[in-house]
Amino acid sequence: MSQLDLKVILEALQKVLPQEQSCIGLHEPYFIGNEWVYVKECLDTRWVSSVGKFVDNFESSLAKYTGVNRAVAVVNGTAALHICLQLIGVKAGDEVLIPSLTFVATANAVSYCGAIPHFIDSEETTLGIDPKKLGNYLDSIAEIKSEGCCNRKTGRFIKAIIAVHTFGHPVDLDALYQVCEHFQLTLIEDAAESLGSFYKGRHTGNWGKVTALSFNGNKIITTGGGGAILTQDDSLANLAKHMTTTAKLPHRWAFNHDQVSYNYRLPNINAAIGCAQLENLPEILSAKRALAEKYAQIFQQIYGIKFFTEPDYAHSNYWLNTLLLNEDYAAQRNDLLELTNNYGIMTRPAWTLMHKLPMYKDFPRMNLEVAESLESRIINIPSSAFLV
């Protein structure tokens, strides 16, 4: 069998990317609006910590843009996931279904609750959870009892599914929701990567009982660090705000707290950056789609590798643009990574699958053959909005 011509792939990337940059990062923030103005206002007024008008504005703007009822801003996406799990009642010893193909924060948030990550497979058309395969798997291991869905093999209850919208591409939410209903599972959306992505015309985050967002420096928009919890449920949103503010009871001066909780609130100065970023989100998304279209066009002509495009039902944000090697050429992935990085084009593989990490290697899992194949073939390529 012949080998891929890696230089042809390198040259294709060079044709799309700016020639004047000697080193091109994977995904860098794009500051084109009122970031300096809003941060200066925080400094001038001294409202820099966890209360202030920018926190309120950021939360209301997020809720409006995504179409949910409430948004609660927190310090990062992992904290958002941690609180999401607690809001739906995940307890120590519960199992939570998560894709093995995800960033480690998804599994860590489950572990923070004393719960058990249970790893499930992905599908190549979305890079996210395969609902049909998952349903068949649960048919073989799950038993519905009065208290909920029980894993017959472990004796533990399976409480929830975390659906990760991988690299910004929505999973098949309708099919996954049906699985959740059939097996009495609560759906959480890990939308850390999918701000600006739509499933059948609705923004991601509208199917899960709660949803987590991330605003890390490499996300679609950034607050430096930062995250948010989305929900349609006012009572859950109020509880989320209470839990992320050390469960402090309102009072003019007294420090009274009614439960063990967390100091997870997003500072006003970070929210100020987020407000400015949100104002320019349509322009950022438009630029990213234009970049993705250039990649799709040029890689259409290259044998043995394809540019991953959004599922038919989705309008994706193309957070991280993705090349997918044909299975026959998976062995050349690392050679391509080395070549592109040597030429100043930052590329990277997918995350190491969760079940391969030492702390998670003995946790329950289904057959993960598709995730294992995808891990060996995925290459993320430069995706910053300013590259077009």
Rank of each mutant, 00 (worst) to 15 (best):
A371Y: 07
H355L: 00
T352P: 02
G224L: 05
G114P: 09
K64R: 13
V51R: 15
T322L: 14
Y318G: 04
A247F: 01
A160M: 09
R289T: 07
L173K: 03
L368V: 12
I345P: 10
V110G: 09
V104L: 11
K133A: 13
T222E: 12
D172W: 03
C180V: 03
G224W: 01
I120K: 11
A12S: 12
V72M: 07
Y112S: 07
L249Q: 08
R365K: 15
F157V: 04
Y313E: 11
L13R: 06
L278D: 08
E279Q: 14
S50Q: 14
G227S: 09
P267L: 04
P358D: 11
P358T: 07
A92Y: 00
H203C: 13
G344S: 04
L368C: 09
A73G: 14
N263T: 12
K248L: 12
F198V: 02
Q297S: 14
Y303D: 15
R46M: 12
Y65D: 02
Q19I: 00
A276T: 08
C42W: 07
C275P: 11
G77N: 08
L101D: 01
M354V: 03
R202W: 01
W319E: 12
E143A: 12
A12V: 10
H355V: 00
K288S: 01
E293S: 11
Y199A: 05
A107N: 04
K132P: 00
N263V: 10
V260Y: 07
F299Q: 12
L374P: 03
L357E: 08
E310V: 06
D233E: 13
P311N: 08
A191S: 14
T322M: 14
L187P: 01
G128Q: 02
A192C: 11
N256W: 08
I24T: 06
L324P: 04
T166G: 00
K288C: 01
R252T: 13
I220T: 15
V179H: 03
D94C: 07
P18A: 03
A330N: 05
G114V: 09
A212E: 06
S140K: 14
L127V: 04
N326Q: 15
A290N: 11
